[in-house]
């Protein structure tokens, strides 16, 4: 996509979301659901960075998401924090979690990485589930929204404010994410996905790049989780569970792995779809499972990935996104050893 077309398209998307409080009643959507879309897409982006761009099967990002949520929940309950402080504590918790797990995950690639991230991701689930005195265990914790940090007044944060905060955070996240994946750092991550051995022979310390990518990913997921807890005023162990990680991965695939805006598209379909289908039927999980199966079998590029491929049919200059098409086909015919 040409730079100007992309800018116009991006601006249009942001404008539509800026008009969200006016538009969402027309679509019979609660504004907090749209906030949830924006917040969730930041977590999906965090998975996209690892899986879509670096090629690491990140199936444990719910751990960081949940740490963000519990960071907020615990700090609101036990410390006298304001709104911004609680979010910062949530992010710090997720960052620390990443710092603890990264040395273990870092050494492995392919399915071994996947297996490790699933297994280690579950540690925090069991801690939250078991230490009922502090975390409330299975019942979860209520998260009353703390007042915003203003020197003069204790201003309460209402749904509309939450929505615009989520939108601002999302836009900032997208701009930073786009800058990141187009920077030399991001190009290196893509090089690692395509052929790590080659990247190593070029003298790149790939472990160090993956370490930084893991920490960025954990921080983003933590921000998302912190906002999520404040949005729904609740944190429970299921936010830390590997199922939650799977939903992020599904959203990423749905939207398009290795595309900047795919995370928003995927999160939109997942959150809105969940909201609509679960009010119609109680068998939402069967639909969800079928969506996984169908998406993997028939639609592995996702929506924006497919758009990307279609657009590239027309003759145009080579862009950074070209490499993304190589994502799912980069080892054809190879029985998955995850090399």
């Amino acid at each position: 996509m040409k730079a100007r077309t992309e800018l116009i398209a991006s601006a249009a998307v942001v404008m539509v979301f800026a008009a969200g409080p006016v538009l969402s009643p027309l679509a019979h959507l609660d504004i907090s659901i749209v906030s949830e879309v924006l917040v969730t897409s930041i977590a999906v982006m965090s998975v996209n960075l690892l899986l879509g761009y670096t090629g690491l099967p990140a199936f444990g990002n719910a751990a960081y998401f949940g740490l963000g949520a519990y960071g907020v929940a615990l700090s609101v309950k036990y410390l006298d924090v304001n709104f911004i402080e609680s979010i910062l504590i949530g992010i710090a918790a997720a960052f620390l979690g990443g710092l603890i797990l990264a040395p273990f995950l870092l050494r492995r690639r392919g399915i071994y990485f996947g297996l490790l991230s699933i297994a280690f991701g579950q540690v925090f689930y069991f801690i939250a589930y078991r230490y009922t005195d502090v975390t409330g265990g299975e019942d979860g914790m209520n998260v009353p929204r703390p007042p915003l940090a203003l020197p003069s007044a204790h201003v309460a944060v209402n749904e509309l404010a939450m929505y615009y905060l989520a939108l601002v955070l999302f836009v900032v996240a997208v701009i930073m994410f786009r800058g990141l994946v187009r920077s030399p750092f991001g190009r290196t991550l893509i090089a690692i996905r395509q052929n790590e051995t080659r990247a190593r022979y070029l003298g790149l310390n790939t472990d160090r790049f993956i370490f930084v990518a893991l920490l960025i990913s954990a921080t983003m997921a933590g921000l998302s989780g912190a906002m999520f807890a404040l949005l729904i005023n609740f944190a429970d162990p299921l936010r830390l569970d590997w199922h939650q990680s799977g939903y992020f991965v599904l959203s990423m695939i749905l939207g398009g792995a290795g595309t900047v805006w795919g995370s928003l598209v995927g999160a939109f379909i997942y959150v809105i779809g969940h909201d609509i289908i679960s009010t119609i039927t109680q068998w939402w999980q069967i639909f969800l499972g079928a969506l996984f199966v169908a998406c993997v079998l028939f639609f592995p590029r996702g929506i924006l990935g497919t758009v990307d491929v279609l657009l590239r049919r027309s003759p145009q200059a080579f862009t950074d996104d070209d490499v993304d098409a190589a994502f799912e086909a980069h080892a054809p015919g190879e029985v998955g050893r995850g090399v």
């Binding site: 199936f59 399915i111 499972g289 998955g336």
Partner: peptide, 27 residues
């Protein structure tokens, strides 16, 4: 369901079987 995925990245089959387990649980 799994066979078509052997030639793809291994995480696709992980995701697919995850979907199967969600469906199975509900069934």
């Amino acid at each position: 369901l799994v066979r078509p995925l052997y030639k793809r990245e291994p995480f696709y089959s992980l995701l697919m079987t995850f979907g199967l387990s969600l469906m199975a649980e509900e069934i």
